[in-house]
Design a protein around this nucleic acid. Sequence first.
DNA 1: ACAACTGCATGAA
DNA 2: TTCATGCAGTTGT
Length: 156
Amino acid sequence: MSAYFTVRFPLGLVVVSYDEHGSLSRISFDLDFRTSEAPSSSDFARDLARDLDSYLKGNPEPLDQYLDLSFASPFSRSAWKAARQIPFGSVTTYGALAAKLDRPGGARAVGQAMGSNRFPLLIPCHRVVAMGGALGGFGSGLRLKRWLLNLEGVNL
DNA sequence: ACAACTGCATGAA
DNA sequence: TTCATGCAGTTGT
């Protein structure tokens, strides 16, 4: 039986879902208020809310626990793992990430993996941009991607 | 078949 | 020369 809670942020709502094992199954920036109900008071939920709040105030996010990535393929997991090594305040490109995974030419595959990331911020796919200064894509909206990068002091 | 990519070709300003 | 499109080549789902 899964559950979720919502957290209010400057941009709107962040919806956090998790399963019965206490593993996060999804985080989304959700502007749809229909889902706002049934808050949970588990410890990690409070920790997550606090850390997300800290992040949005300009501090690097510390979270790396609770994530349940079992739903994804090995390639996607390794891509996310590589993405998590991108430090706060810097960016890399889809192609560079692919190269790091010994998959030159797999930039598009990396893009697909980033696109299926369920944990924005915790897996900072917003730090992966296109080659040549373009933003690339972002499931929650390019406006938000730019906003997050700007928050980290990155300007394109 | 599709995708949150890239690199080269081509053409307009 | 510098930018904007277009298209083919590639990899994983």
